[in-house]
Design a protein around this nucleic acid. Structure first.
Lengths: 249, 249
DNA sequence: AAGTGGTCTAGACCACTAT
DNA sequence: TAGTGGTCTAGACCACTTT
C-alpha cells in the first residue's frame, strides 16, 4: 500500500484528520510498532507543515482512539490492542427500535401494583408504594423478539395521562425529542435463560438463552422514574465490535 | 447547588476542562434542557474570558461525550440521553485477568487438530489444515469462572515454541507488552446456555446462563492468527454502564 | 448581510523527563 | 539544560444557516 506523506490543503479533509490518517496508516503498516515512540510533535510540525496546535489535535484524536498514549516530557508511544479498551455499542440494539417499517411495539398489559421490596429499593420508594406496571413486546417482521417489563413510579397526586406513559415510552428512549424528562440512567446486561412467562411472550421455548438488560432511569433531580428489563431472545441479538486500528478507508 | 461562573487561572484544572464542567453543571441542573441552544461560542469567549480555540475544545469534549451536538451555522444544542449512544466496556472483564493475586490460568489441554469447516473459514485456511487447540480455564479464588477455547493457526514450517503460544496468551491480551504481534481483532458477545462440556469445566450445572465472547485476532498483515471463545458463567459477569451526564465530581 | 460553527496559525509559556 | 508534551491566545479565514 502506498501512503501519503504530505497534507493537501484546499477542499480536502481538515489537516488534523489527514494527519491522523497518515499516522494511523504508518502504525497499521508496522512502521511504528507497539511500544515505539512517534516523532516529536515539533518534528511532525516541520514534516507536514502544520502548526503545533494542529499536530496536538491529531495526537488527541489518536489518544481518544486508544492507538497511542503520551508521557509528558518523554514522548508519544504506540499502544498495542488491549482487551480492556474494548467497548460494545448498543447502537445495533437501538436500531431495531428505530426501524419503524419492520418493527411494532405492542403494550399488552398495564396495571397498578404494589411495589415489592426489590422494586421499592430500585425506585427509592417506601415499601408498599404503588407503581405502574407496563408490559410491552417488540415484534419484528411478525416475530416477537424483545419483551419489555417496566415499573413506573405512581404519584396519586398527579393524574396518569398518556403523556406520562410516554416518559419512558420506547419511542422516546430511542429517538431524541424535546420532551425528554430523563437525565441519567443505569444499565446492566446479564446473561439469562428464558423463564416460562418470558418464553411464552416471546413465542419460543423455555430455557433458551437470552440477554436481560436491566435499566433504571432518573429525572433531573436524580430521582428514579422507572425500573425495568428488556428481555431479548439470544438468537436475535449479538453485540459485536473490533479491537485495534480501524481502517479509515 | 452553587456553580462557578468564571474560570480560575493558575494552578487549577485547564481552562477548557473547567468550561466543560461549568456547562455540564448547567445542563445537569436543567438550565439548558434537551433541545435548547447553548450560547454562541463568541459569547462564551466573552463570558469566560477565553479564546475561541479554548471554547471550541470544550465544545468538542461535550460532543465526544454525546451531551451536545452542533449544526454548523446554526448553533450548539443539548441532546437528551439516547439509548443508541450507550456503550459497555470490557474493562471489568479485563480486570479479572489482571488481578494476579486472586486469579490463576490453567492450560488443561493442548493438541494439534484438523480444522473443521467453521474454524477453517474463520482462520481463512484450506479445509483440512492443522490448528493448535488450546483449552484454558481461569480460576478465581478457587472457583472456575471463565473457560477459554482457542484455535491457533499451525504453520509446520515454523517450530512451535512457547513464545508462539504466548502470541495470544491471556496475559499478553490484557497487559500491554512490546511483543504484541496482534494488530486487530473482532469480538462478539452472545447469550448462551452452558453445554455439558462447558458446565463440567466450569464446575456448574448444565443449562446455566452464560456469555460467550467469540474472538478472531489478526496480525499486521491482517491474516487471522487465532479464533476462539471465552465462556463466562453468567452469575459471575455482568456488564454495567450509565447513560446521560456523568457527574464530574 | 449577519450570525454561528469549524479550522488553522505562529508563537508564548508551562510542566515534566532525560541526561 | 535541552527536549518533549500540554495549554492558551488573538485573530484570520472559511462554510453554513438564518433573517
Amino acid at each position: 500500500m502506498d501512503h501519503r506523506h504530505h497534507i493537501i490543503r484546499r477542499g480536502e479533509a481538515p489537516a488534523y484528520i489527514q494527519l491522523v490518517n497518515i499516522l494511523k496508516d504508518q502504525i497499521a503498516e508496522g512502521i511504528y510498532l507497539p511500544g515505539d515512540r512517534l516523532p516529536p510533535e515539533s518534528e511532525l510540525c516541520k514534516t507536514y507543515q502544520v502548526s503545533s496546535m494542529t499536530v496536538r489535535r491529531s495526537i488527541n484524536v489518536l489518544i481518544d482512539q486508544r492507538i497511542v498514549s503520551t508521557i509528558q516530557g518523554s514522548g508519544t508511544y504506540v499502544k498495542g490492542p488491549e482487551f480492556g479498551d474494548v467497548t460494545f455499542s448498543m447502537e445495533e440494539f437501538s436500531n431495531i427500535f428505530k426501524d419503524k417499517e419492520r418493527t411494532k411495539v405492542n403494550i399488552f398489559e398495564v396495571q397498578i401494583i404494589t411495589a415489592d421490596n426489590r422494586a421499592a429499593q430500585k425506585l427509592e420508594l417506601a415499601a408498599g408504594a404503588k407503581t405502574i406496571l407496563i408490559k410491552r413486546v417488540l415484534v419484528r417482521d411478525g416475530d416477537p423478539i424483545i419483551y419489555h417489563k417496566e415499573q413506573l413510579i405512581y404519584d396519586p397526586s398527579r393524574p396518569i395521562v398518556e403523556a406520562e406513559l410516554e416518559v419512558t415510552s420506547l419511542h422516546g428512549l430511542f429517538i431524541q425529542n424535546r420532551e425528554t424528562k430523563l437525565k441519567t440512567g443505569k444499565l446492566s446486561i446479564e446473561a439469562a435463560v428464558l423463564s416460562r412467562e418470558e418464553a411464552d411472550v416471546l413465542g419460543t421455548t423455555q430455557m433458551n438463552p437470552a440477554f436481560r438488560i436491566e435499566h433504571v432511569f432518573y429525572d433531573l433531580e436524580d430521582k428514579p422514574i422507572s425500573w425495568g428489563k428488556f428481555i431479548c431472545r439470544g438468537d436475535c441479538i449479538r453485540f459485536t465490535t473490533t479491537i485495534g486500528i480501524n481502517a479509515h478507508k
